[in-house]
Protein backbone atom coordinates (compact mmCIF):
# COMPACT_ATOMS: atom_id res chain seq x y z
CA UNK A 1 0.00 0.00 0.00
CA UNK A 2 1.27 3.42 -0.91
CA UNK A 3 1.58 6.20 1.63
CA UNK A 4 -1.59 7.98 0.50
CA UNK A 5 -3.56 4.74 0.69
CA UNK A 6 -2.31 4.21 4.23
CA UNK A 7 -3.34 7.69 5.26
CA UNK A 8 -6.69 7.32 3.49
CA UNK A 9 -7.37 4.06 5.31
CA UNK A 10 -6.34 5.46 8.67
CA UNK A 11 -8.68 8.38 8.07
CA UNK A 12 -11.40 5.93 7.08
CA UNK A 13 -10.99 3.80 10.18
CA UNK A 14 -11.15 6.85 12.42
CA UNK A 15 -14.12 8.41 10.66
CA UNK A 16 -16.26 5.31 10.17
CA UNK A 17 -15.19 4.08 13.59
CA UNK A 18 -16.50 7.27 15.21
CA UNK A 19 -19.75 7.29 13.26
CA UNK A 20 -20.21 3.59 14.00
CA UNK A 21 -19.61 4.15 17.69
CA UNK A 22 -22.02 7.05 17.91
CA UNK A 23 -24.72 5.00 16.23
CA UNK A 24 -24.21 1.69 18.05
CA UNK A 25 -23.79 3.13 21.55
CA UNK A 26 -27.38 4.36 22.01
CA UNK A 27 -28.62 1.06 20.72
CA UNK A 28 -26.57 -0.84 23.30
CA UNK A 29 -27.98 1.42 26.00
CA UNK A 30 -31.43 0.73 24.63
CA UNK A 31 -30.99 -3.03 24.73
CA UNK A 32 -29.38 -3.01 28.17
CA UNK A 33 -31.99 -0.70 29.64
CA UNK A 34 -34.87 -2.69 28.22
CA UNK A 35 -33.81 -5.42 30.67
CA UNK A 36 -33.64 -3.06 33.63
CA UNK A 37 -36.34 -2.70 36.26
CA UNK A 38 -38.65 0.29 36.19
CA UNK A 39 -37.21 1.34 39.55
CA UNK A 40 -33.68 1.46 38.19
CA UNK A 41 -34.69 3.43 35.09
CA UNK A 42 -36.57 6.06 37.05
CA UNK A 43 -34.14 6.46 39.91
CA UNK A 44 -30.76 5.87 38.25
CA UNK A 45 -31.18 6.45 34.52
CA UNK A 46 -30.49 4.18 31.57
CA UNK A 47 -27.72 1.57 32.07
CA UNK A 48 -25.90 -0.51 29.45
CA UNK A 49 -25.68 -3.36 31.93
CA UNK A 50 -28.70 -3.32 34.20
CA UNK A 51 -28.11 -3.61 37.94
CA UNK A 52 -31.70 -4.68 38.60
CA UNK A 53 -32.42 -7.21 35.88
CA UNK A 54 -36.09 -7.50 34.89
CA UNK A 55 -37.97 -9.26 32.12
CA UNK A 56 -41.25 -7.62 32.98
CA UNK A 57 -41.53 -5.63 29.75
CA UNK A 58 -40.74 -8.58 27.53
CA UNK A 59 -43.19 -10.65 29.55
CA UNK A 60 -45.86 -8.06 28.84
CA UNK A 61 -45.09 -7.94 25.11
CA UNK A 62 -45.04 -11.70 24.71
CA UNK A 63 -47.93 -12.35 27.07
CA UNK A 64 -49.93 -13.58 24.10
CA UNK A 65 -47.37 -15.14 21.74
CA UNK A 66 -50.04 -16.20 19.25
CA UNK A 67 -50.98 -12.60 18.62
CA UNK A 68 -47.39 -11.53 18.14
CA UNK A 69 -46.73 -14.39 15.73
CA UNK A 70 -49.79 -13.51 13.68
CA UNK A 71 -48.82 -9.84 13.63
CA UNK A 72 -45.34 -10.78 12.43
CA UNK A 73 -47.01 -12.77 9.66
CA UNK A 74 -49.09 -9.77 8.56
CA UNK A 75 -46.05 -7.51 8.64
CA UNK A 76 -43.88 -9.89 6.65
CA UNK A 77 -46.63 -10.36 4.08
CA UNK A 78 -47.22 -6.65 3.49
CA UNK A 79 -43.50 -5.92 3.53
CA UNK A 80 -42.65 -8.54 0.91
CA UNK A 81 -45.62 -8.04 -1.38
CA UNK A 82 -45.71 -4.28 -0.99
CA UNK A 83 -41.99 -3.85 -1.61
CA UNK A 84 -41.98 -6.01 -4.72
CA UNK A 85 -44.97 -4.31 -6.31
CA UNK A 86 -43.79 -0.87 -5.31
CA UNK A 87 -40.29 -1.42 -6.63
CA UNK A 88 -41.49 -2.78 -9.94
CA UNK A 89 -44.06 -0.05 -10.64
CA UNK A 90 -41.81 2.72 -9.34
CA UNK A 91 -38.87 1.74 -11.50
CA UNK A 92 -41.13 1.22 -14.49
CA UNK A 93 -42.49 4.74 -14.10
CA UNK A 94 -39.00 6.07 -13.50
CA UNK A 95 -37.87 4.44 -16.73
CA UNK A 96 -40.63 6.21 -18.66
CA UNK A 97 -39.46 9.50 -17.20
CA UNK A 98 -35.93 8.95 -18.48
CA UNK A 99 -36.83 8.20 -22.09
CA UNK A 100 -36.12 11.17 -24.30
CA UNK A 101 -38.65 10.03 -26.87
CA UNK A 102 -41.44 10.71 -24.36
CA UNK A 103 -42.32 14.28 -25.13
CA UNK A 104 -44.30 14.91 -21.95
CA UNK A 105 -41.78 13.33 -19.61
CA UNK A 106 -41.12 16.57 -17.75
CA UNK A 107 -44.84 17.23 -17.36
CA UNK A 108 -45.30 13.69 -16.05
CA UNK A 109 -42.46 14.16 -13.57
CA UNK A 110 -44.03 17.38 -12.41
CA UNK A 111 -47.42 15.68 -12.19
CA UNK A 112 -46.14 13.29 -9.54
CA UNK A 113 -43.77 15.76 -7.90
CA UNK A 114 -46.58 18.25 -7.38
CA UNK A 115 -48.24 15.86 -4.93
CA UNK A 116 -45.34 16.31 -2.52
CA UNK A 117 -45.90 20.05 -2.45
CA UNK A 118 -49.63 20.27 -1.92
CA UNK A 119 -51.93 18.08 0.08
CA UNK A 120 -55.42 18.54 1.38
CA UNK A 121 -54.36 17.37 4.82
CA UNK A 122 -55.43 14.40 6.84
CA UNK A 123 -59.19 14.85 6.85
CA UNK A 124 -59.83 14.73 3.08
CA UNK A 125 -57.34 11.89 2.75
CA UNK A 126 -59.14 9.88 5.38
CA UNK A 127 -62.50 10.47 3.75
CA UNK A 128 -61.23 9.48 0.30
CA UNK A 129 -59.74 6.24 1.61
CA UNK A 130 -62.73 5.33 3.74
CA UNK A 131 -65.78 6.66 1.92
CA UNK A 132 -64.69 6.79 -1.71
CA UNK A 133 -62.22 3.93 -2.08
CA UNK A 134 -63.81 1.87 0.72
CA UNK A 135 -60.48 0.57 1.94
CA UNK A 136 -61.24 0.66 5.65
CA UNK A 137 -60.42 -2.63 7.36
CA UNK A 138 -58.99 -3.99 4.13
CA UNK A 139 -55.54 -5.46 3.63
CA UNK A 140 -55.32 -3.35 0.48
CA UNK A 141 -55.18 -0.21 2.60
CA UNK A 142 -52.10 -1.52 4.39
CA UNK A 143 -50.49 -2.25 1.02
CA UNK A 144 -51.55 0.79 -0.97
CA UNK A 145 -51.33 3.68 1.46
CA UNK A 146 -47.54 3.52 1.99
CA UNK A 147 -46.82 2.08 -1.45
CA UNK A 148 -45.36 4.89 -3.54
CA UNK A 149 -42.97 7.61 -2.64
CA UNK A 150 -42.30 10.35 -5.16
CA UNK A 151 -38.79 10.86 -3.83
CA UNK A 152 -37.91 7.26 -4.52
CA UNK A 153 -39.32 7.35 -8.03
CA UNK A 154 -37.28 10.44 -8.82
CA UNK A 155 -34.16 8.93 -7.26
CA UNK A 156 -34.66 5.81 -9.39
CA UNK A 157 -35.12 8.03 -12.41
CA UNK A 158 -31.78 9.63 -11.65
CA UNK A 159 -30.02 6.27 -11.41
CA UNK A 160 -31.58 5.00 -14.64
CA UNK A 161 -30.63 8.26 -16.32
CA UNK A 162 -27.00 7.37 -15.73
CA UNK A 163 -27.27 4.36 -17.98
CA UNK A 164 -26.26 5.62 -21.43
CA UNK A 165 -29.21 6.33 -23.74
CA UNK A 166 -27.47 4.35 -26.48
CA UNK A 167 -28.36 1.08 -24.76
CA UNK A 168 -32.17 1.26 -24.90
CA UNK A 169 -32.03 3.06 -28.23
CA UNK A 170 -29.94 0.30 -29.77
CA UNK A 171 -32.41 -2.23 -28.44
CA UNK A 172 -35.30 -0.29 -29.98
CA UNK A 173 -33.58 -0.47 -33.34
CA UNK A 174 -33.15 -4.21 -32.82
CA UNK A 175 -36.91 -4.36 -32.53
CA UNK A 176 -37.27 -4.92 -28.79
CA UNK A 177 -40.42 -3.53 -27.16
CA UNK A 178 -40.10 -0.86 -24.47
CA UNK A 179 -41.44 -3.11 -21.74
CA UNK A 180 -38.97 -5.80 -22.69
CA UNK A 181 -36.10 -3.33 -22.70
CA UNK A 182 -37.12 -2.24 -19.24
CA UNK A 183 -37.32 -5.72 -17.77
CA UNK A 184 -34.39 -7.29 -19.62
CA UNK A 185 -31.86 -4.48 -19.82
CA UNK A 186 -32.66 -1.67 -17.44
CA UNK A 187 -33.71 -3.65 -14.37
CA UNK A 188 -30.60 -5.90 -14.26
CA UNK A 189 -28.39 -2.87 -14.74
CA UNK A 190 -29.81 -0.99 -11.77
CA UNK A 191 -29.28 -3.59 -9.07
CA UNK A 192 -27.59 -1.28 -6.54
CA UNK A 193 -30.29 1.35 -7.00
CA UNK A 194 -33.10 -1.20 -6.76
CA UNK A 195 -31.44 -2.72 -3.71
CA UNK A 196 -31.23 0.59 -1.87
CA UNK A 197 -34.71 1.83 -2.80
CA UNK A 198 -36.06 -1.65 -2.10
CA UNK A 199 -34.48 -1.52 1.33
CA UNK A 200 -36.05 1.85 2.07
CA UNK A 201 -39.45 0.74 0.88
CA UNK A 202 -39.23 -2.43 2.95
CA UNK A 203 -38.31 -0.37 6.01
CA UNK A 204 -41.28 1.91 5.45
CA UNK A 205 -43.64 -1.07 5.32
CA UNK A 206 -41.96 -2.67 8.28
CA UNK A 207 -42.23 0.39 10.48
CA UNK A 208 -45.67 1.52 9.39
CA UNK A 209 -48.15 1.58 12.26
CA UNK A 210 -49.93 4.72 11.13
CA UNK A 211 -51.89 3.13 8.28
CA UNK A 212 -53.22 0.43 10.55
CA UNK A 213 -54.03 2.95 13.26
CA UNK A 214 -56.10 4.95 10.80
CA UNK A 215 -57.70 2.26 8.67
CA UNK A 216 -57.56 -1.12 10.38
CA UNK A 217 -59.85 -1.92 13.30
CA UNK A 218 -59.76 -5.68 12.68
CA UNK A 219 -57.26 -7.16 15.06
CA UNK A 220 -56.50 -10.21 12.90
CA UNK A 221 -55.07 -7.99 10.17
CA UNK A 222 -53.04 -5.64 12.33
CA UNK A 223 -49.30 -5.60 11.68
CA UNK A 224 -46.63 -5.96 14.33
CA UNK A 225 -45.76 -2.30 14.70
CA UNK A 226 -49.34 -1.35 15.36
CA UNK A 227 -49.74 -4.14 17.89
CA UNK A 228 -46.64 -2.90 19.71
CA UNK A 229 -47.85 0.67 19.44
CA UNK A 230 -51.10 -0.39 21.05
CA UNK A 231 -49.34 -2.17 23.89
CA UNK A 232 -47.45 1.02 24.61
CA UNK A 233 -50.49 3.23 24.40
CA UNK A 234 -52.50 0.98 26.68
CA UNK A 235 -49.77 1.28 29.28
CA UNK A 236 -49.70 5.04 28.80
CA UNK A 237 -53.43 4.95 29.29
CA UNK A 238 -52.98 3.44 32.70
CA UNK A 239 -50.55 6.18 33.56
CA UNK A 240 -52.28 9.17 32.05
CA UNK A 241 -56.01 8.93 32.23
CA UNK A 242 -57.18 11.21 34.98
CA UNK A 243 -60.50 9.52 35.54
CA UNK A 244 -59.10 6.08 35.87
CA UNK A 245 -57.75 4.16 38.79
CA UNK A 246 -56.31 1.22 36.95
CA UNK A 247 -54.98 -1.42 39.26
CA UNK A 248 -52.12 -2.85 37.29
CA UNK A 249 -48.48 -2.07 37.84
CA UNK A 250 -46.92 -1.66 34.41
CA UNK A 251 -43.32 -0.91 33.43
CA UNK A 252 -43.91 2.15 31.29
CA UNK A 253 -40.35 3.34 30.75
CA UNK A 254 -38.66 0.01 30.06
CA UNK A 255 -41.56 -1.05 27.85
CA UNK A 256 -40.81 1.79 25.43
CA UNK A 257 -37.29 0.45 25.05
CA UNK A 258 -38.21 -3.23 24.86
CA UNK A 259 -40.72 -2.48 22.12
CA UNK A 260 -38.00 -0.88 20.02
CA UNK A 261 -35.82 -3.94 20.46
CA UNK A 262 -38.60 -6.36 19.54
CA UNK A 263 -39.68 -4.37 16.51
CA UNK A 264 -36.17 -3.87 15.17
CA UNK A 265 -35.15 -7.54 15.39
CA UNK A 266 -35.76 -9.47 12.16
CA UNK A 267 -35.57 -6.59 9.68
CA UNK A 268 -31.89 -6.17 10.54
CA UNK A 269 -31.25 -9.40 8.65
CA UNK A 270 -32.29 -7.62 5.48
CA UNK A 271 -29.33 -5.31 5.51
CA UNK A 272 -26.50 -7.82 4.92
CA UNK A 273 -28.59 -9.19 2.05
CA UNK A 274 -28.79 -5.73 0.48
CA UNK A 275 -25.07 -5.17 1.05
CA UNK A 276 -24.35 -7.92 -1.47
CA UNK A 277 -25.39 -5.51 -4.18
CA UNK A 278 -22.91 -2.90 -3.07
CA UNK A 279 -19.92 -4.34 -4.82
CA UNK A 280 -18.22 -2.31 -7.48
CA UNK A 281 -19.19 -3.07 -11.03
CA UNK A 282 -22.23 -5.11 -10.09
CA UNK A 283 -24.35 -2.94 -12.37
CA UNK A 284 -22.11 -3.05 -15.40
CA UNK A 285 -21.40 -6.73 -14.95
CA UNK A 286 -24.99 -7.41 -15.82
CA UNK A 287 -24.60 -6.14 -19.36
CA UNK A 288 -21.19 -7.54 -20.00
CA UNK A 289 -22.17 -11.10 -19.29
Amino acid sequence: MSADEVSFNVLGYVFLGLVGLVTIYPFLVLIGSSFASEHELITKGYPIIPAEFSLKSYGLIFSSPGKIARAYGVTIFITVVGTLVSLFVSSMSAYVLTRRSVKYRRKLAFFIYFTTLFSGGLAPYYIVIVSVLHLKNSMLALLLVPMFNVMYILILKNYLRQIPDSLPEAAVIDGAGEFRIFTRIMLPMSKPALASIGLFTALIYWNDWWTAMMFMDREALQPLQYLLYRILSSVNLAANIVNSATLIDLPKESLKLALTVVSTGPILLLYPFVQRFFVKGVALGAVKE
Binding site: L122, A123, Y126, I127, M213, M214, Y229, R230, S233, N236
Partner: peptide, 12 residues
Protein backbone atom coordinates in the same frame (compact mmCIF):
# COMPACT_ATOMS: atom_id res chain seq x y z
CA UNK B 1 -59.35 5.19 19.61
CA UNK B 2 -55.88 5.18 21.14
CA UNK B 3 -54.94 8.04 23.45
CA UNK B 4 -52.15 9.16 21.18
CA UNK B 5 -54.52 9.20 18.21
CA UNK B 6 -57.49 10.86 19.87
CA UNK B 7 -56.89 14.32 18.47
CA UNK B 8 -56.38 13.11 14.91
CA UNK B 9 -58.76 10.19 14.67
CA UNK B 10 -61.82 11.28 16.62
CA UNK B 11 -62.93 14.07 14.27
CA UNK B 12 -62.04 11.96 11.24
Amino acid sequence: IGWGDLAAKYPL
